[in-house]
Design a protein around this nucleic acid. Structure first.
Length: 265
DNA sequence: CTATTTGTTTATCC
DNA sequence: AGGATAAACAAATA
């Protein structure tokens, strides 16, 4: 589930434990979310370190402990972050539990295990954090960057292109559909057939959907208003909030997409 | 039992 | 080399 705003929401769930110190780290190294990771180092190194910062960049999270400990989390399709109280036993999908010197524990759960845990011990940040691309809601994010990438992916459907995290950090399936619906562009339009004016509109909506999602979902997981595509796209039988005509669902670029044939072209 | 799922990586072909 | 596409991953839900 987690896209830009959902990740931001989950980031905030751990904040009450900021400035607390780690007592112990509980994990099952066999789980897929730890693939390629030195779990023993993570387990022993965090002890007695202070939880100092929780940042998110697109869908990537970075939790900092002490001076040199960088914990990365990616929530995949079903990842969640929340706090638990001492004494609660980990459930089936709670793969990482960090017990703090209070009654709180930091919990990462992920049913489908498409998510991932990263860990790096150094005063300087790891590459997965230092090499992050410009964020959509930052001042460095430019139309030129988007335009250039659409040129490079000339033969791809725009829907598939919007899911590329290096260029559109945080955009996932529902945000891509929302952006294209608001821009009135069909998801399977080839990038080469999208003109300058349309590209500018797509760029504008990338920023707008990101901001709207942060305001509504990122703040407190609020329910989006009915004039977004969001509330109508999930199951078959929905209607376009603009035209009232039926929405269509089909795979585009390998992902289930939803659009309004009477509104987009 | 089958089909589906809000994500990413890897393999394969072009 | 780099783009385009599909499969693989895992588990719950309909």
């Amino acid at each position: 589930m987690p896209e830009l705003a959902e990740v931001e929401y989950y980031r905030k769930q751990w904040l009450p434990a900021i400035d607390q110190c780690v007592i112990s780290v509980h994990l099952n190294a066999e789980k897929r979310v730890f693939r390629g990771l030195d779990c023993a180092a993570l387990q022993s190194n965090l002890i007695n370190e202070k939880f100092i910062e929780a940042e998110a960049h697109g869908k990537q999270l970075c939790l900092r402990f002490g001076k040199s400990h960088w914990l990365g989390l990616h929530l995949g399709m079903t990842g969640k972050m929340y706090l638990s109280e001492t004494g609660e036993l980990p459930t089936k999908h709670e793969h990482l539990t960090i017990r703090m010197d209070s009654k709180l524990s930091l919990v990462f759960s992920d049913m489908r295990m498409f998510g991932r845990v990263l860990y790096f011990n150094n005063e300087l940040p790891p590459q997965w954090w230092s090499l992050r691309p410009p964020e959509i809601l930052s001042s460095e994010y430019s139309f030129e960057r988007v335009d250039t990438y659409l040129n490079r992916r000339a033969n791809s459907p725009i829907k598939a292109v919007l899911l590329v995290q290096k260029i559109f950090p945080g955009v996932g399936n529902w945000m891509a559909d929302e952006i294209l619906w608001r821009s009135r562009i069909l998801p399977d339009r080839q990038c080469r057939k999208i003109n300058l004016q349309e590209r500018k509109e797509i760029y504008r909506q990338i920023l707008k959907v990101s901001k709207d999602a942060m305001d509504v979902i990122g703040a407190d997981w609020g329910k989006p208003p009915d004039n977004w595509l969001f509330n109508h796209r999930w199951k078959a039988g929905g209607y376009c909030p603009q035209t009232g005509s039926p929405l269509v669902r089909a795979k585009v670029g390998g992902r289930t997409s939803c659009w309004s044939p009477s509104w987009q072209r």
